[in-house]
Design a protein around this nucleic acid. Structure first.
Length: 722
DNA sequence: TATGACATCGTTTTT
DNA sequence: CGATGTCATA
């Protein structure tokens, strides 16, 4: 069954009721159902709702993400693929460090092979289910090289008994393909499969579902092609567009009634997304008609944009709307700064979802690395993190040397070090320090308490981590100590929550593994608490699946939303448009869309034109766009123009009008795309693009008679035409 | 080997 | 801008 569920049409409700129905009618036992989502938060919500509907009888339905489902399968059966069951999972940071090491091993220049890019490529390749040999066979020199890197990267992963995120899915698929007996056991076990957000599945995930559902064909997928926003990790919108082809005879259900937003908001969002070609097309009908018009606001710069948002937010609060009913969505995390600053200025409580993650902090990663090494000594990336942290006199040269020995003997760093100690291959201080360190690690392992929290406490103590922080005595060190305390609390909580779950699915699981993997697969969204009275800041990606009374969609500018990287790829633009649609449809009744004419990015100043998506929203759906294109003088503009008198925004009938003139015309306003200018030689023209700032500002101008020219603002005697 | 000053560089979204 | 890497120096 394919359920095409528009935004706010009750997708989760449909899924949970279907599960409850399967149980109630006796069609399936609880443990015969597999429900797959993309985020832990969605999984948790769905689990709770199912339990409410059909009563929790102590036996859980398996509702989980693709990744945690695969971890569970692999923990029990990965032996068939030559890994050990105690494998660790590498997150991006670990994976990136490994890519760098591999590039060094292969003597590849980081200039021609930027590690981050390589890592991203490996991710994509894995998402498509390709093996190193497949990549090499692809032909081009670049592919061949990438294939070699891929192969070496996998060799190192295996040596470390580590899997990256991509491996979790790829290896599960391979397990099923190469070991039909294993596949069969899961096919028998999960007789009903339900998949949320099907439009975001990538080719390997698609394969995985196909394999699992091949026998019984009880596959129910829910999705919305207009909300497919994970193309960059190879999500393939065709998976949903072609479902009926892949599963002939599938029932198709459309949910087109929206229970969330006002008609205004829906129509505006639909107007945007209907510019896409890759869609099935559906018409969303709101349950509630009318509503406030959408409010547009063009700010002079990013700070003015933030202050507009905060002022509007405070107005809502004064009218009694809790802060938690509003959210600020931006395209990239980097845009959060001015909003955070402004919120702090006004002493407004806020929460940022995503961004820098707690578990990404160095001290946390280090502490966890100790735990990983206790469980799995061959985890070279973790060992590298901690071998000299806290500082214990095992420097870069020694580590390089040990890694070299490992490479020569095809050993992990841990084993290579043991070998070096045994054969007396180290000289100087290292000859003393290295054995000391490994003796400590061995002792830690021998004395490790069964309790995760106690084990962690012991590690922090005996490794000297806490002592080093105390000795440092700085404010930063205090913060790090506090973070480690928080980690200890998290470990205790984890143990309390999981005591009863040991035998939940009839499999014994190592508690330490469970703790470590829950952290690796954890995302900040997962414990975002909507009930606390504070405004939420997040990217539009994170916002998917959430809803708010009022949404501020900010930074809606060419180059930002749609993002630079998408500008010359029509398919990528379509994805940005879907993203915009997702952002808009999170709003129940209030939607503010803003852009800034000028913003500081990466230390320099940028002038962005308003996003094309704004132009795609018909005029009648909003207010605030009437007074665009008023520009104060910028450097190089000959004639000083008086500041435009503050104009008030004509509101819709009965709407209070607001005067934003202060925010709109900051003193450092410059020339901006869309402005009409006159050049002494070329005559009149329109500014298409502004590049650079200050002395170096260059303008791309399309002159009415002379065509497209690039002009250096400082030299050209431009005059601004009103 | 540790440390701090300096240079470089690359900029999206996430399980 | 901020993170990361490199180099010189103690």
């Amino acid at each position: 069954m394919l359920v095409l569920a528009g935004a706010g049409s009750g997708k989760t409700r449909m899924l949970t009721h279907r599960i409850a129905h399967l149980i109630a009618t006796g069609a399936a036992q609880r443990d015969e159902i597999l429900a797959v989502t993309f985020t832990n938060k969605a999984a948790k919500e769905m689990r709770e709702r199912v339990n409410q509907l059909s009563g929790y009888d102590g036996y859980r339905i398996w509702v989980a993400t693709f990744h945690s489902t695969c971890v569970r399968i692999l923990r029990s059966d990965i032996g068939q693929l030559g890994y050990e069951r105690g494998f660790v999972i590498y997150d991006q940071t670990d994976s990136l460090a490994l890519v760098k090491r591999v590039l060094r091993q292969m003597n590849l220049d980081e200039r021609s092979h930027p590690p981050r890019g390589v890592r991203a490529e490996l991710d994509r390749v894995k998402s498509r289910g390709l093996m190193p040999a497949d990549v090499i066979a692809d032909g081009t020199l670049h592919d061949e090289r990438l294939g070699e890197i891929y192969r070496q990267y996998q060799t190192e992963l295996r040596r470390a008994n580590a899997l990256d995120f991509g491996d979790l899915i790829v290896l599960t698929v391979r397990l099923f393909q190469n070991h039909p007996g294993v596949l069969e056991s899961y096919q028998r076990r999960w007789r009903y499969i339900l998949v949320d957000e099907y439009q975001d599945t990538n080719p390997v995930q698609y394969q995985l579902l196909r394999l699992l559902a091949a026998q019984h064909r009880n596959l129910c997928v829910v999705g919305d092609e207009d909300q497919s926003i994970y193309r960059f990790r190879e999500a393939d919108i065709r998976n949903i567009l072609d479902f009926e082809k892949d599963y002939p005879g599938a029932a198709v259900v459309r949910l087109e009634r929206n229970y969330r937003s006002t008609q205004q908001i829906l129509d505006a969002a639909t107007a945007v997304v209907s510019n896409n070609t890759e869609r099935k097309g559906k018409k969303l009908v709101a349950n509630q008609s009318g509503g406030d018009p959408i409010r547009f606001f063009e700010a002079a710069d990013d700070r003015a944009e933030a202050s507009y948002v905060i002022r509007e937010l405070l107005r809502l609060r004064d009218r009694g709307q809790p802060l938690s009913e509003s959210a600020i969505f931006y395209r990239t995390h980097a845009q959060s700064r001015p909003f955070e600053e402004e919120l702090r200025n006004y002493d407004v409580d806020y929460t940022m979802v995503g961004g820098t993650r707690f578990y990404d902090r160095a001290e946390i990663k280090d502490a966890l690395a100790y735990l990983r090494i206790l469980r799995n000594p061959n985890d070279t990336e973790s060992l590298r993190r901690i071998i000299n942290s806290p500082v214990r006199g095992i420097g870069k040269t020694t580590v390089e040397r040990l890694l070299m020995i490992g490479e020569q003997h095809e050993l992990s760093l841990y084993r290579a070090s043991e070998l070096a100690i045994e054969r007396g291959m180290l000289r100087g201080a290292a000859a003393k320090r290295v054995p000391e360190f490994f003796a400590m690690m061995d002792a830690l392992r021998d004395d490790a308490p069964a309790s995760v929290a106690q084990c962690l406490a012991q590690v922090l103590d005996r490794s000297g981590t806490l002592r080093a922080l105390e000795r440092e005595g700085s404010i930063e060190a205090e913060g790090r100590q506090a973070n480690l305390q928080e980690l200890l609390v998290a470990a205790e909580e984890f143990e309390r929550d999981n005591e009863s779950l040991d035998e939940d699915h009839g499999e014994e699981r190592n508690l330490l593994d469970l703790f470590l993997e829950s952290i690796t697969l954890y995302s900040e969204l997962d414990d975002y608490d909507e009930t606390r009275d504070r405004i939420a800041l997040m990217t539009v990606h994170v916002a998917k699946g959430l809803e708010f009374q009022t949404v501020f969609l900010v930074g809606v500018e060419e180059g930002l939303f749609p993002h630079f990287a998408s500008l010359n790829d029509p398919a990528a633009i379509e994805e940005e448009r879907r993203l915009c649609y997702v952002g808009m449809t999170r709003a129940k009744s209030g939607l503010h869309i803003t852009n800034a004419s000028m913003r500081r990015m990466h230390g320099s100043v940028r002038y962005n034109a308003p996003s094309r998506f704004l132009a795609e929203i018909p005029e009648e759906f909003g207010v605030g766009r009437e007074q665009r294109r008023n520009y104060a003088r910028g450097p190089g503009f000959g004639t000083a123009r008086p500041r435009p008198a503050p104009t008030s925004t004509p509101g819709a009938a009965g709407e209070p009008t607001i005067d934003y003139s202060e925010a709109q015309y900051a003193p450092d306003d410059g020339p901006s795309s869309g402005s009409r200018v006159e050049h002494p030689v070329f005559g009149a023209g329109t500014i298409m693009q502004v590049v650079g700032s200050g002395q170096n500002t260059k303008l791309r101008i399309r002159f009415d008679r002379a065509g497209l020219k690039t002009i250096v603002l400082r030299y050209a005697q431009l005059r601004l035409l009103a």
